[in-house]
């Protein structure tokens, strides 16, 4: 029997399938906690936040849109928001598709919709292709949620350089992705 994908488990959880949710918890829980623990460095709090994240995943599973993000990334954004809320006491304000002012994607982009799961895998591979210094700047900007001035101070380089390195790394990432999109 093939292992069900996160995306399948999430769909079944949206239909209130508790067994699927147990499997989802086992599949992604340890990585959610790994991320949370790296941010808060406190075992008990990390466990508590992880539980809250997974409870939110259960409650909002019906809002997951497989065309927009991989299941892993959707769960990551919930974890990110919860971490910022719990540790920084501020909210990550987000755009919401239910907003009457939300401008929908143009129809032509529907033809170009790739499976979000496949795109996530390609992005992972593209990250590995980046030069190490560029990948490091990206990972730092993501991972530690350091402000750019902090990175610049630690690395002893100018702020403008850090920003442009992050942009450059990201553009390279997009170029690698675009190249792979060609037939």
């Amino acid at each position: 029997m093939t292992k069900p994908s996160l995306s399948d488990l999430l769909k079944r959880a949206a239909e209130r399938d508790r067994e699927a949710f147990r499997l989802l918890y086992a599949a992604i829980g340890p990585r959610v906690k790994g991320f949370v623990l790296a941010r808060c460095r406190e075992e008990g709090l990390a466990e508590e936040i992880t539980q809250e994240v997974l409870l939110t995943v259960w409650r909002r599973a019906d809002r997951y849109d497989a065309g927009r993000a991989s299941a892993e990334t959707w769960i990551f954004t919930i974890a990110r928001n919860r971490v910022v809320d719990s540790l920084r006491h501020r909210r990550v304000v987000e755009a919401d598709q239910r907003d009457p002012q939300f401008v929908p994607d143009p129809p032509e982009s529907l033809d170009a919709v790739v499976d979000a799961q496949k795109r996530a895998e390609r992005i992972g591979a593209a990250l590995d292709e980046l030069p190490e210094a560029q990948r490091e700047v990206l990972v730092q900007s993501f991972y530690e949620a350091l402000s750019y001035p902090e990175i610049a101070e630690r690395e002893g380089v100018a702020l403008g350089t850090v920003k442009s390195r992050a942009r450059l790394a990201f553009q390279r990432l997009r170029a690698i992705l675009a190249g792979e999109d060609e037939p």
């Binding site: 918890y25 992604i28 829980g29 340890p30 990585r31 959610v32 906690k33 790994g34 991320f35 949370v36 623990l37 790296a38 990390a46 466990e47 992880t50 927009r68 993000a69 991989s70 892993e72 990334t73 769960i75 990551f76 954004t77 974890a79 990110r80 987000e94 755009a95 919401d96 907003d99 002012q101 939300f102 401008v103 929908p104 994607d105 143009p106 982009s109 979000a116 795109r119 996530a120 992005i123 992972g124 990250l127 990206l138 990972v139 993501f142 991972y143 990201f170 990432l173 997009r174 992705l177």
Partner: peptide, 30 residues
Amino acid sequence: LTLCPACRQTLAIAEEAAASTLMRAEAPLD
């Protein structure tokens, strides 16, 4: 982002990259 599909597309890539770098390590659950 509410008003700009193009930037939502860019953010989607940034979030996939963030998830793929940040949710690599596992920590054992209680």
